[in-house]
Design a protein around this nucleic acid. Structure first.
Length: 669
DNA sequence: GGGTAAGCAGTTTTT
DNA sequence: CTGCTTACCC
């Protein structure tokens, strides 16, 4: 089978270069995914076993899409092909090797941002550091930088060093790791255990990394250590689309890569197959304002297409109205399907107004970002129960549910137990287990019974979930046993529909677990709680993979990376949002990254791009007067149709504008 | 000891 | 507006 037909020469070259280091600089819309998937397919035809290939991506979605597309191409079952995110790959390594780290067992918990903050707070309290005077976010970031080799303790940060060690010790005590650990711990394990490293190198003889511009220093180390001897490493990226530096992404990795693998082949993909000439010219013109970039110019063989249109609605409600009206109109004229449309925003908070408008207008939409399903309180509660069943030493999760729903264990009691735990240097759960029958516990009789009941509850369900009753069944039974439904009603007395909605979420959650268990069984894998928990911690959003058809996509620009839509609305393109005031304030050098972000946004559009910039916008309490984004002036003249003179944009105006547009379409321009 | 009401701060982007 | 902490009351 030939997997190079239909590709251009550069793409072909990329697909056929299997051995040795390869750097592919792939501009927006240059068929990057196509190249990667075809390359993998080609490798398989060359007799390279699936199990030798490791493809690392940035998001779960990208991973899923990639393996899906390779499967379609090859029409083979690919159960041994490893396509995963860096973090998920880290989990995979840890599941096998974490016992090599002192104090850790393989039922470890993974802490997300929220857990992490809670733990930092907890540690600060223990050190007597007045937690409310601390900026947990900032500290969290410092801890991250230190962990991932980006930062050493210095004059400014030294005051947190002690807190950091406390934090690390607690993680170990709770048998827990944070997100950074998922990358960093595997590196340490591989470095310190040559035989383990050797086995991984033997296994993964071909490594590919997608979205290379967004890899962090730590991630780079991980991929490097794996491929240093085989040297079959292929990285694909675009420095112009590097938009995650705040999370440690280091576009200099491209330079590091050239240094560490000097014999590399470099291939540039500059032909754009996605956007019209106009859109591309706008994007090129904009990004040319950045100084620090690899020179490249995207080009397209297709025509210029429609002008980019900019509108200036009075406020965010009018903006939402404009967008929904446009969509409605184009849809009713059969020009678009809902799923052809992307509405892109800088911040999640901008989605609220849009969502309202879409609901009002009855336009189906899908929103990604924001609090994902798994972050909802009722779901997190249940996950915490599962966590405690699988790893009782996990104090953070224990504290979360020890009195949820209320079972009469109050803060006083908790404080006592925590003190005991601290004294004995053990987890809260062990402290309770030891205390509950002790006569000298210093606790009241009632407290003791309540605690005892709690431990029995956990033990009962722990037993249940591990003896093959199934996770879904266990959770269902647990929900009944702790009377979660009455609890929900009690919590939302004024608002029974919220209670019902939350309960529906729980049912959906249980269903999702059941489904997962089913698939695991079908594929002949054991459906262990550990695996389930590890998996869902890394899922942030887009859990509903199947029903994205027939819906408009509302998402942040970050979330839109790697996607494309025929029609794109770019909302809230105002001076304080694009570039985001906070980002620039933090460091003026961030301006270039903000520009890249805007570049990514523009290049998502295939045929038509609407930009809206509100003249005022409600921000929490007050109304802000807004200016258009300065980036708009960086788009070359002649590509834009500016509707700046048009006063107050009413729905009728939008309709009118649309008829004009329609006329233009008809005249074939 | 435990629950409740008032008071207050708040999210830029995500694995 | 909301969700969380704090202070207060049962």
């Amino acid at each position: 089978m030939d997997f190079t037909s239909g590709l251009n020469d550069r793409q072909k070259e990329a697909v056929l270069s299997i051995d040795g280091p390869l750097l592919i600089i792939a501009g927006a819309g240059s068929g990057k995914t196509r190249v990667i998937t075809h390359r993998i397919a080609h490798m398989l035809t060359q007799g390279i076993p699936q199990s030798s290939i490791l493809a690392l991506t940035f998001t779960n979605k990208a991973a899923r899409e990639m393996s899906e597309r390779v499967r379609e191409l090859t029409k083979k079952k690919l159960s041994n092909l490893t396509v995963s995110t860096f973090h998920a790959f880290g989990v995979q390594i840890l599941r096998k090797t974490i016992h090599l780290l002192p104090g850790y067992r393989d039922n470890f918990s993974i802490y997300d941002q929220a857990d992490k903050n809670a733990l930092i707070k907890e540690c600060a309290r223990e050190l007597g550091m007045a937690p409310d005077t601390l900026d947990l976010w900032e500290i969290g970031n410092i801890f991250s930088s230190v962990k991932t080799f980006r930062h050493k303790w210095d004059g400014d940060t030294k005051i947190y060093e002690k807190l950091f060690h406390e934090y690390q010790e607690h993680l170990q005590l709770y048998n827990a790791v944070d997100f950074d650990d998922l990358i960093v711990r595997p590196i340490h394990i591989l470095q310190e255990n040559p035989e383990v490293l050797e086995s991984y190198r033997e296994r993964f003889r071909y490594v590919m990394v997608d979205e290379f511009q967004d890899t962090s220093m730590a991630q780079y180390r991980l991929m490097k250590i794996l491929s240093e001897t085989n040297r079959n490493i292929c990285v694909v990226g675009d420095d112009d689309q590097s938009i995650y530096s705040w999370r440690g992404a280091n576009y200099e990795n491209i330079i590091n890569f050239e240094r560490d693998f000097p014999e590399l082949t470099e291939i540039k993909l500059e032909q754009n197959y996605r956007s019209t000439g106009n859109i591309l010219a706008a994007a090129n013109g904009l990004i040319a304002h950045n100084t620090n970039r690899k020179e490249k110019e995207l080009w397209t063989g297709t025509g210029y297409g429609n002008a980019i249109e900019i509108y200036y609605p009075e406020n965010e409600q009018r903006e939402a109205e404009f967008i929904t009206t446009m969509i409605r109109m184009l849809k009713s004229r059969g020009e678009i399907e809902y799923h052809d449309v992307g509405v892109l925003i800088r911040t999640n908070s901008l989605s609220a107004t849009l969502e309202d408008a879409f609901l009002n207008e009855n336009i189906p939409y899908r929103i990604s970002g924001g609090t994902s399903f798994f972050q909802r309180k009722e779901i997190k509660d249940l996950i915490s129960y599962l966590r405690i069943m699988s790893n009782p030493d996990d104090d953070m999760n224990l504290l979360r549910i020890i009195n949820t729903p209320r079972r009469g264990i109050g803060k006083r009691t908790l404080q006592r137990i925590q003190e005991t735990a601290q004294k004995k240097n053990c987890s809260i759960y062990s402290a309770i287990s030891a205390l509950r029958y002790a006569s000298d516990s210093g606790l009241g009789e009632k407290a003791q019974t309540d605690l005892s009941d709690f431990v029995s509850l956990i033990e009962y369900y722990r037993e249940m979930v591990f003896t093959g009753k199934g996770i879904a069944k266990t959770v269902q039974s647990l929900v009944d046993a702790v009377q979660y439904w009455p609890y929900l009603i009690g919590e939302h007395q004024k608002n029974e529909s919220t209670a019902r909605w939350k309960y529906a979420n729980i049912c959906r959650f249980i269903e999702m677990i059941a489904q997962w268990e089913e698939t695991q069984k079908e594929e002949g894998r054991k459906a262990s709680v550990y695996d389930y928990l590890n998996r869902i911690t890394l899922i942030t959003r887009d859990d509903d993979q199947d029903d994205d058809d027939g819906k408009v996509n509302i998402m942040t620009i970050h979330a839109a990376k790697g996607l494309e839509f025929s029609l794109v609305f770019l909302a809230g393109v105002e001076a304080h949002l694009v570039p985001h005031a906070r980002a620039v304030e933090e460091d003026p050098a961030n301006l270039e990254e903000e520009r890249r972000l805007f570049y990514v946004a523009i290049t998502r559009a295939r045929e038509k791009l609407y930009i809206t910039s509100c003249r005022s916008r409600r921000n929490m309490r007050d109304v802000l007067v807004c200016e258009p984004s300065p980036f708009l002036t960086e788009i070359p003249e002649g590509l834009i149709e500016d509707h700046i003179g048009e006063d107050e944009l009413s729905t009728e105006d939008a309709v009118e504008a649309l008829s004009a547009l329609r006329a233009k379409f008809a005249s074939g321009s």
